[in-house]
Amino acid sequence: MTKHGAILSGAVLLGAALTAMAPTAAVAAPAAASAPASASIQVCGFYETHATAYYNHCGDAPIWIVVDYASGPNQYRQICGRGVTDIGGAGAVDNAWYSHPAPAC
């Protein structure tokens, strides 16, 4: 076996061992009725699916976010409470981020 063949074989064996050690199933909390099923495993902030862009606000206080659109200027949007908000189509929105606190909604 060549030096490169031994390295490749070792990498394959390591990958197989790690795969065997990985859990086979994950338990997720049920998603809210208005949120897509995948939202239950998303982190806080901006994310998108194949069709829709979302902002998941994990705090309790109202905030303003900046939505970066693929064409046109960025726009502020108020998020009133905790949870997932649809902020547009995945092709129309490039990103979104926290800007500053908002007054009570």
Rank of each mutant, 00 (worst) to 15 (best):
residue 10 G to S: 10
residue 14 L to I: 13
residue 17 A to E: 05
residue 3 K to Q: 12
residue 20 A to K: 01
residue 31 A to W: 07
residue 37 A to R: 07
residue 90 A to F: 01
residue 98 Y to S: 05
residue 40 S to D: 09
residue 74 N to S: 15
residue 11 A to F: 11
residue 36 P to R: 02
residue 39 A to C: 02
residue 36 P to A: 02
residue 43 V to Y: 12
residue 84 V to G: 00
residue 52 T to W: 03
residue 12 V to G: 04
residue 41 I to Y: 12
residue 29 A to V: 13
residue 58 C to F: 05
residue 71 S to L: 06
residue 102 A to E: 04
residue 21 M to W: 05
residue 1 M to C: 11
residue 24 T to N: 10
residue 4 H to L: 15
residue 37 A to I: 07
residue 65 I to P: 02
residue 1 M to F: 11
residue 25 A to G: 05
residue 77 R to E: 09
residue 46 F to P: 00
residue 87 I to H: 01
residue 17 A to T: 11
residue 45 G to P: 02
residue 44 C to V: 02
residue 39 A to W: 00
residue 100 H to K: 13
residue 10 G to L: 10
residue 5 G to M: 01
residue 12 V to L: 13
residue 1 M to W: 12
residue 101 P to Q: 07
residue 28 A to D: 12
residue 88 G to K: 05
residue 2 T to P: 08
residue 91 G to Y: 06
residue 24 T to R: 13
residue 91 G to A: 10
residue 99 S to F: 08
residue 40 S to W: 01
residue 32 A to C: 03
residue 11 A to C: 13
residue 7 I to S: 09
residue 14 L to A: 15
residue 10 G to Q: 06
residue 24 T to E: 10
residue 51 A to Q: 14
residue 34 S to G: 09
residue 1 M to N: 10
residue 32 A to T: 11
residue 97 W to R: 13
residue 74 N to F: 07
residue 78 Q to D: 09
residue 93 V to N: 00
residue 11 A to K: 06
residue 61 A to Q: 14
residue 79 I to E: 00
residue 65 I to S: 06
residue 13 L to I: 14
residue 21 M to F: 10
residue 4 H to E: 14
residue 19 T to F: 14
residue 70 A to M: 03
residue 60 D to V: 08
residue 13 L to E: 07
residue 69 Y to R: 15
residue 79 I to S: 04
residue 84 V to L: 04
residue 11 A to W: 05
residue 77 R to Q: 15
residue 16 A to W: 01
residue 21 M to R: 05
residue 97 W to C: 01
residue 20 A to W: 08
residue 46 F to L: 02
residue 89 G to N: 14
residue 3 K to P: 03
residue 16 A to G: 12
residue 6 A to P: 03
residue 15 G to E: 05
residue 27 V to K: 10
residue 54 Y to S: 06
residue 7 I to H: 08
residue 2 T to K: 08
residue 37 A to N: 02
residue 53 A to I: 04
residue 95 N to D: 14
residue 63 I to F: 06
residue 27 V to N: 03
residue 88 G to S: 08
residue 55 Y to F: 15
residue 13 L to Q: 03
residue 31 A to V: 05
residue 20 A to F: 02
residue 58 C to G: 05
residue 25 A to L: 07
residue 22 A to V: 00
residue 47 Y to K: 03
residue 102 A to H: 04
residue 33 A to P: 08
residue 104 A to G: 03
residue 73 P to S: 14
residue 68 D to E: 14
residue 92 A to M: 07
residue 92 A to H: 07
residue 100 H to Q: 13
residue 71 S to N: 12
residue 49 T to S: 13
residue 94 D to T: 12
residue 29 A to P: 07
residue 56 N to F: 11
residue 96 A to D: 01
residue 85 T to S: 12
residue 90 A to H: 04
residue 97 W to K: 04
residue 10 G to R: 00
